[in-house]
């Protein structure tokens, strides 16, 4: 045991293995959860036949997907087409490296952890765009272009609203930000005003980053058939789909860490609080997804630049004033 703890390489490998596997399994079963959740919202049972209450449904889906024939369209850009799904997955998982799961439980404790996560998550646009471009499909191309435009725009309010906890916490290290929120002084609640508004903006911008309804225009089923994934088959489609869920999961983890105090909570601090909070955010995202309709591209671009950016700038200003004078 001590060998592992002392050797940074071994420690990284073990921590990575544990985190990645835990997250993948979580993402797979979150699909089951979402199907049941959607069923509950729509007066239908959801999966019931495969395993108890349909619990084995993700396993069946996975086993089916890996058996499918692998098709690459004739005129597709073969290299990019094949690279996009695993690249998206890698980038989403890379962001998990710097998360403070509990006091002292950080796989890689970077000074600039938040910056790392945000830059990694903005890179995810690239595989999405690659998938759209390389498919040689017009629907996929439209989806990819929409995704690129959307991600570039929503980066701005995402970063600006993430500035609020940086200013309030006084650090870019995620552990420090969580520590600054100890004893219930979560940034979403205290100081009143900038933190809570920035929290809402951050979650909305994360929805847009993760291509979720109401901002899911890159994969708008009713307009673009299946958007960027139109030509993807089998496990490549599965990877893109899973990466989307993981991205949502990472967004809710980040939201819980930055604004809801991370591992902090009544009683003993620990990973259970972080998981509980992020799960609540995750379920909230599903709730939004199965309730709202979809914005048009130009409409939510206008929403981004006319509402989100000014409001998040104001939040930053108020937070800075609070930080200096209070």
């Amino acid at each position: 045991m001590s060998v592992i703890l002392e050797n940074p390489w071994l420690l990284g490998a073990v921590a990575g293995f544990v985190v990645i596997n835990a997250m993948m399994v979580t993402a797979a079963w979150s699909i089951w959860f979402e199907r049941k959740f959607a069923g509950a919202m729509q007066n239908r049972p959801g999966p019931t036949q495969v395993g108890w209450a349909g619990l084995l449904q993700p396993v069946a889906d996975l086993l089916k997907l890996i058996q499918k024939e692998d098709i690459v369209p004739t005129n597709a850009d073969r290299a990019l087409f094949n690279l996009a799904p695993p690249l998206g997955m890698i980038l989403v998982l890379a962001g998990l490296a710097v998360f403070p799961w509990a006091p002292g439980w950080v796989p890689a404790d970077l000074d600039i952890g938040l910056l790392f996560i945000l830059s990694i998550s903005s890179l995810i646009t690239i595989p999405v765009w690659m998938a759209g471009w390389a498919s040689n499909n017009k629907y996929a191309l439209l989806g990819g272009m929409r995704a690129a435009a959307q991600a570039v725009s929503f980066e701005v309010p995402l970063l600006l609203s993430a500035l609020v906890p940086i200013i309030l916490g006084g650090s870019l290290r995620l552990g420090d930000i969580v520590a600054a929120q100890a004893d219930g002084r979560w940034f979403a609640l205290w100081p009143p005003g900038p933190g809570s508004v920035a929290f809402v903006l951050f979650m909305l911008a994360s929805l847009a980053e993760a291509n979720r309804i109401p901002f899911d225009i890159p994969e708008a089923e009713s307009e673009l058939v299946a958007g960027i994934t139109t030509e993807y088959v089998g496990m490549k489609f599965g990877l893109i789909y899973l990466a989307e869920y993981l991205h949502t999961a990472v967004s809710s983890l980040l939201g819980a860490t930055l604004f809801l105090g991370g591992w902090d909570g009544p009683g003993p601090d620990g990973i259970h609080w972080l998981l509980l909070k992020s799960f609540a955010l995750f379920a909230g995202i599903f709730w939004v997804r199965w309730t709202l309709l979809r914005y048009r591209a130009d409409q939510f671009m206008a929403l981004c630049w006319r509402v989100f950016v000014p409001v998040s700038l104001a939040c930053v200003a108020v937070a800075a004033v609070w930080r200096v004078y209070a």
Partner: peptide
Amino acid sequence: LDMGGALGGGASVFMH
């Protein structure tokens, strides 16, 4: 369904 997609709020309207 046209506005919300098969995997979104539109599907809820549709099912109801």
